[in-house]
Amino acid sequence: MLWYLIRRLFLVIPTLIGVAIAVFFLIRVMPGDVVVVKLRADGADVSEEMIQAERKRLGLDKPLYMQFTDYMVGLAHLDLGKSLWTGDSVNKEIAIRIPVSLQIAVMASIIAVLISIPLGTISALYRDTWIDHSVRVLAVSGLAVPSFWLGMLIILALLALFNWLPKIGYVPLWEDPIANLSVTIWPAISVGYRYAAVATRMMRSALLEVMREDYIRTARAKGVWTRLIMRRHALRNALLPVVTVIGLEFAFLIGGLVVTEQVFNINGVGKLFVDATTRGDFNLIQGLVLFIATMFIFVNLIVDLLYAWLDPRIRLS
């Protein structure tokens, strides 16, 4: 297991370096100038000379190879540089936004697990009955509903039913759990629905497959009650694909957050990313992309490790 871990970690490093390089150069060809946006976008009559001076101050006039060296040296110290918009460190800009996005992501995953395991199990147990069919339709539609639209529908429903709207602003969970949940639960549902749908489908098909496998058949032959099988063997094996789904769907989770944070006015990583691209804040964009990609790679790594841990066959092969 340790060797497996080391081997996997070793493989991650070149990918991360590749991502860092790709992002740097991809963004440098992006048209548009953060300085122009900053100084001119509000309508001021700003001279070209002043724009050049500001570019110089931000180090944007340096040749590309020097900017690249600065960036790589910074990365080696885990320093993502300074935001060209606010002048604050990118690390800090991101750190401020992590708690709320992370909480929504975790809550969405919890919602997904809470919904998918029972639904997927029931669906598999009552295969090809109307229960199964309705669960499947619900699941397929979960894949189809855009999370931002679901968010708008939730707002409409809250407004129509309770004449109430979620507040704006994030209060940490430990300070005021109710205020915190009343803000985060709605985007978590919007994003989590898709998650739950995918996991339910996976759960169902995995259970069906596992139930066909030999050892379950043996167990059944021994006359063990079906539900016990569910609990003992099948469920554990079927958890494997569900874990995978969480890894695979992480990309959609990020995507969901990017759009849903807009709908619910949440000051999270997704909104920061949208703002950064709108402004052309190179340092912040590359920092964020790198951060998201790293998260993504590590989530997949953890999922793989969990998978290996749950299923010894993978480790050995």
């Binding site: 990309a251 990020i254 964009i285 992309v289």
Partner: peptide, 11 residues
Amino acid sequence: LSFPIIVLAMV
């Protein structure tokens, strides 16, 4: 593959 779809598309 290390970029979530929407992130890559937005960039």
